[in-house]
């Protein structure tokens, strides 16, 4: 059964159509990345899947269950979120921050059990956060902070993780590091639905790419096909080249001849 199945989703705000007949699915152990120019509807799609925004038509199914019928807690056991701009609370330790993910499991009244702390410890070890467990999360560097957010999402233990532009603001090394960590989780069964602006990284890490433009799905195919598809450059309204280096596709924007000096 698909981890998430989006069928004919439509979202409108006033006169504007943000999503129009959008359908996609993510299977167990699969990484799907949604790409597309600014305003394509990527974040809107994330919000509808997370139950933070209502659609006017269509349905989101998580493990076959209609998303609109789920309580917050039920949903949080099926899907976790790494938001585009996580709010970083002041004065909370990294361990407590990662433990926020366990609320989906134990509810909001009970204290963390030894099982909760075991999961939090294991997640932090996997992400190289163990040495930072007592640090104030607000004092972390950008790369460390994003790993803590990833840790919080992993601690939820949900089979699907949705990430909205998770590498925004990170330097190249930390971008790669975060995506490699995520890839390792996918190898052990996690499903990922991410949005990314960097087409090279999108192509290198995802199994499938979904190109969204003006609220519609333009392409939905294996990553290698999408990065080479003429429609990709057309939708970004620019010239793109794909260079293969050691078997990996690198998508390079080319400055138009007329604008070169």
């Amino acid at each position: 059964m698909s981890r998430v199945q989006v069928e004919s989703l439509g979202v409108r705000v006033g006169e504007a159509t943000l999503l129009d007949e959008v359908s996609l699915r993510v299977e167990p152990g699969e990484w799907v990345t949604v790409i597309g120019p600014n305003g394509a509807g990527k974040t809107t799609l994330v919000e509808v899947i997370m139950g933070l925004r209502r659609s006017v038509s269509g349905v989101v199914r998580l493990e076959g269950r209609a998303g609109s019928a789920l309580s917050e807690r039920e949903r949080a056991r099926l899907v976790s979120l790494v938001p585009q701009h996580p709010e970083v609370p002041a004065g909370m330790t990294v361990a407590d921050y990662v433990d926020l993910g366990r609320v989906a499991r134990r509810g909001w009244v009970r204290a963390a059990s030894s099982e909760d702390w075991r999961v939090v410890g294991a997640v932090m070890a996997r992400l190289g956060l163990s040495g930072l467990s007592g640090r104030d999360v607000a004092s972390l560097s950008g790369g460390e902070r994003q790993r803590a957010v990833l840790g919080r999402a992993l601690a939820q233990g949900a089979p699907l993780m949705v990430l909205d532009e998770p590498i925004t603001g990170l330097d190249l090394r930390h971008q790669m590091e975060l995506l490699e960590l995520l890839r390792r989780e996918v190898e052990s069964g996690l499903s990922v639905l991410a949005t990314l602006h960097d087409l090279t990284l999108a192509g290198q890490f995802a199994d499938r790419l979904v190109l969204l433009d003006a609220g519609r799905v333009v392409l939905d195919a294996p990553a290698r096909e999408v990065v080479r598809h003429p429609e990709l450059a057309a939708r970004y309204a620019m010239e793109l080249r794909v260079v293969e280096i050691d078997g990996a596709d690198v998508v390079v924007p080319v400055r138009r001849a007329g604008s070169r000096r």
Binding site: M50, G51, L52, S71, E72, R73, R75, A76, R77, S80, L81, P83, P86, E87, V88, P89, M92, D96, L100, G101, V103, A104, R105, W108, V109, R110, A111, R152, Q156
Partner: peptide, 24 residues
């Protein structure tokens, strides 16, 4: 007092709290 833990969760904002499973 019993809502204290929920208030700690809410320090990350409404949308994130809901995605963490809190009925905000």
């Amino acid at each position: 007092l019993s809502a204290a833990r929920a208030l700690d969760v809410m320090s990350v904002g409404e949308d994130e709290s809901r995605s963490l499973g809190l009925p905000v």
